[in-house]
């Protein structure tokens, strides 16, 4: 069976099933399950939003007016941060595959910083929304607040877990336990991180822009 370009550069570790290394297959299976959970959240959001009266007999607030132009642009900047951290993750993998572990380490550190930056901005946004908008009585539709906090909170938990995962990868690289010979560990960590980025693209569009 033909191997992938990444595996040609360096063979993956561990046993294989159906021509795919167990670790990668396991991560993909987990991501499918996680994606279906997010799909449930998003489908529920769509159902509530387009139901009669927004599902609570109160009009669904227009996100652009709720979050404001600055709020939307701040979240767009946050999206940009997450996309940048995805780029740094693929660069970390590319460097690890080439055996440049110091470079890979630096890119992984950039990925971690990007994730922390994202969480910081989201924390700032949540604080503002809870104190100044939702608890101030400006938003009457409870379904809007419920779906917003469930979706962004569930995603934020994923980012937090991803940061910890990446930190473990970083420490592994620094201690020498992760090296060119087992760079597929970085690839598997990257799959999770890119998935977090991918889901945020959808959440940002459906919750903040539409």
């Amino acid at each position: 069976m033909a191997s992938t370009a990444l595996e040609e550069l360096h063979p993956p570790l561990g046993e294989e099933s159906l021509g795919v290394v167990h670790g990668k297959l396991g991560m993909w299976t987990f991501l499918v399950m996680d994606a279906m959970t997010f799909a449930g959240f998003l489908a529920g959001y769509a159902r509530l939003r387009w139901g009669v009266g927004g599902g609570a007999d109160i009009p669904w607030p227009y996100p652009y007016d709720t979050f404001g132009q600055v709020g939307i642009q701040l979240t767009a900047f946050n999206t940009f941060i997450l996309v940048c951290s995805s780029v740094s993750m693929v660069h970390s993998l590319a460097a690890a595959l080439k055996g440049n572990m110091k470079t890979a380490q630096n890119w992984m550190l950039a990925t971690i910083i990007g994730g922390l930056f994202f969480l910081g901005i989201q924390g700032f946004e949540w604080t503002h929304l809870i104190k100044d908008i939702f608890f101030n009585g400006d938003i009457k539709n409870v379904n809007f607040a419920a779906t917003f906090f469930c979706l962004t909170g569930f995603h934020g938990c994923h980012v937090a877990v991803g940061v910890i995962y990446n930190l473990i990868m970083f420490l592994g690289m620094r201690s020498g336990k992760i090296h060119q010979g087992n760079a597929s560990l970085v690839e598997i960590a990257g799959l999770y991180w890119h998935f977090v980025d991918l889901v945020w693209i959808l959440v940002f569009t459906f919750v903040y822009l539409i």
């Binding site: 069976m1 992938t4 370009a5 990444l6 159906l18 021509g19 795919v20 990668k24 297959l25 993909w28 299976t29 991501l31 499918v32 994606a35 279906m36 799909a39 995805s86 780029v87 993750m89 693929v90 690839e187 990257g190 799959l191 890119h194 998935f195 980025d197 991918l198």
Partner: peptide, 18 residues
């Protein structure tokens, strides 16, 4: 970024399922 461009059809199929 998730390298589906370079993956086996099995992985692409798994990725498309959700």
């Amino acid at each position: 970024y998730m390298h589906l461009v370079d993956e086996r059809p099995l992985i692409v199929l798994i990725g498309c399922t959700p």
